[in-house]
């Protein structure tokens, strides 16, 4: 029996919204420790790695590890019927062939319950090696979202270079070139506005803006976003969910012609 109760159901809704355009049919893996998802997009260029700890839930029971095969666009439709302040309950028997979702509104006392048929999804798990990244940048997630959106006007590829000068985002296209340089900023009193750049050695990589734009759907989950890069490796873009978990995106670089 798997049963989990999340007082702030909206967190789960935001997680679904942050990945449902990138990965469609996913397994939500339930263990005694956490709910997790690891899934690549259809082109195998990006990997989503989500984790939500059992400590995020008011009640969490998982007798046996389960994989809940779900179509995220369908799950997203169901979450449209959840109120902002609703409590969310997930429930599945061990012979999981369906998932129960319940939305409880304490104020009005209404309870909505939905049943989703589960799918059998064959998904090979990728081994993501632990890497000591050469550059790690923490910045306001809204700033990253704006940079990605603005540079999409200029072209389809973003060059991200981390040097002692700072962090530069560049895009070149038919109409010209755009550069946005961010410098370390730990002066502002609001922690969330800080930009911290830890650079062990300079790194410069190219990425498809289309994917970076998908990743910024996770912006509502976290005021800050963490970018980690090493020469010749996929970038990791991490949206921490308070201390309860994270949504991480890995993206393979584009090679220079």
């Amino acid at each position: 029996m798997f049963e989990a109760r999340l007082a702030n159901g909206n967190i789960f809704k935001m997680i679904v919204e942050s990945i449902r355009e990138l990965v469609v049919d996913v397994n939500i893996d339930c263990s005694t420790e956490e709910l997790s998802i690891q899934c690549m997009d259809s082109a195998h260029v990006a990997l989503v790695s989500m984790s939500l700890s059992q400590s995020a839930f008011d009640h969490f029971r998982c007798d046996r590890s389960l994989s809940l095969g779900l179509n995220l666009p369908n799950v997203s439709k169901i979450f449209k019927m959840m109120g902002r302040d609703d409590t969310m309950v997930l429930k599945a028997e061990d012979s999981a062939d369906k998932l129960m979702l319940m939305f409880e509104n304490d104020k009005s006392g209404t309870i909505a319950d939905f049943e989703l048929k589960l799918m059998a999804i064959e998904a090979e798990q990728l081994g993501v090696p632990d890497t000591a990244y050469k550059c790690s940048i923490s910045m306001p997630s809204s700033e990253f979202q704006r940079i990605v959106r603005d540079l999409q006007v200029m072209g389809d590829t973003c060059k991200i270079s981390c040097t002692k000068e700072g962090l530069k985002f560049s895009a070149t296209g038919q109409i010209g070139t755009g550069n946005i340089l961010m410098r370390q900023n730990v002066a502002s009193e609001k922690e969330e506005d800080h930009v911290t750049i830890d650079m062990e050695e300079p790194v410069e990589l190219n990425f498809a803006l289309r994917y970076l734009n998908f990743f910024t759907k996770a912006t509502p989950l976290s005021p800050t976003v963490i970018l980690k890069m090493s020469p010749g490796l996929p970038i990791v873009i991490e949206y921490p969910i308070e201390q309860l978990g994270h949504v991480k995106y890995y993206l393979a670089p584009k090679m220079e012609e």
Partner: peptide, 14 residues
């Protein structure tokens, strides 16, 4: 512009 690699170039199957 440029050639898009896939993640299999970097991550194996566990």
């Amino acid at each position: 512009s440029g050639l898009q690699a896939t993640l299999h170039k970097y991550f194996g199957y566990s």
